[in-house]
């Protein structure tokens, strides 16, 4: 057991998700547990298959979707060469995994907590909901462009109050922004916690409303990463004083009023 490590582990299971709607795009990849002492929702891992040739030199960062004493699962969407090859892994293949990396989302069991997910940004919230002692205090809002079946929405909605909005047109987008504004305002007024993960424009919207309504909000940033351990300085963002800080080690979760992106 260790606090943080780099291990070669075997792929246990590769489960496609949402095949009817978007074949070959979303996958749950389950790996042998790398023997960590502990992990917290919001943290991430770097994954690089051992057999990868040197044409792709970096591992790929994925938030921890869920884990138990025997396995670790990441939820991935194919979006480039690296994720395509990771999706093509088969049980028994070996991957190097280093983690758990970065910090985690705030968890205040008694505080009303709003989870705002933009598309694949839903991934870390599966573990968050599983770990939350009082899921009755948690609510999920998912904004998505691809069909709902592609996301673990139902799994999360089985435990917490959840709703979702599909974006197909610019009118939909405005409705989503309005809904987010309403929700963030509501949670600001009741002194709750707002946690967000999604694409950059989505996070900027969260940051803007959090500032406007004075909400306590955290955003999880996902920059391109070379190393995941704070060394390459390729994933930096700016803190509120305008200084570059690594997303991988100082984040990926930042208080919305303490970061510029």
């Amino acid at each position: 057991m260790s606090l943080r490590n780099c291990r070669n582990v075997k792929v246990l299971k590769v489960a496609p998700v949402g095949q009817q709607e978007r074949p070959d795009e979303f996958y749950e990849i389950t790996l042998e547990y790398p023997d960590w002492d502990e992990w917290r929702p919001g943290q991430f891992v770097m994954v690089r298959p051992v057999a990868w040739p040197l044409d792709l030199v970096w591992g790929r960062p994925f938030s921890i979707y869920t884990a138990d004493e025997t396995s670790l699962t990441v939820f991935i969407q194919k979006s480039g060469r690296g994720t395509a090859r990771i999706a093509a892994l088969r049980p028994g293949d070996e991957v190097a995994v280093w983690g758990p990396l970065g910090n985690s989302f705030a968890m205040e069991p008694d505080a009303p907590t709003l989870l705002l997910a933009g598309g694949i940004g839903i991934a870390p919230f599966r573990g968050y909901v599983e770990r939350h002692p009082h899921p009755g205090n948690v609510r999920l809002f998912l904004a998505h462009r691809v069909p709902l079946e592609c996301y673990p929405y139902d799994i999360i909605a089985a435990d917490v109050c959840a709703d979702c909005m599909l974006e197909k047109t610019s009118t939909d987008l405005q409705a989503i922004i309005d809904a987010m504004g309403g929700l963030i305002r509501e949670y600001a007024e009741k002194g709750g916690l707002v946690l967000a993960c999604g694409p950059t424009p989505f996070m900027r919207t969260v940051q803007r409303f959090a500032k406007e309504y004075g909400a306590r909000a955290q955003v999880s940033l996902e920059n391109r990463m070379g190393c995941g351990v704070g060394a390459c300085l390729g994933c930096v963002t700016k803190d509120s004083a305008g200084h570059h800080v690594q997303v991988c080690t100082r984040g990926p979760v930042f208080w919305a009023d303490k970061v510029e992106f």
């Binding site: 792709l56 300085l233 930096v236």
Partner: peptide
């Protein structure tokens, strides 16, 4: 402070 982002890009074998 270093350079603005983006700062890194993956290229074939490097």
């Amino acid at each position: 402070e270093g350079n603005p982002m983006p700062r890194i890009a993956e290229t074939p074998c490097g």
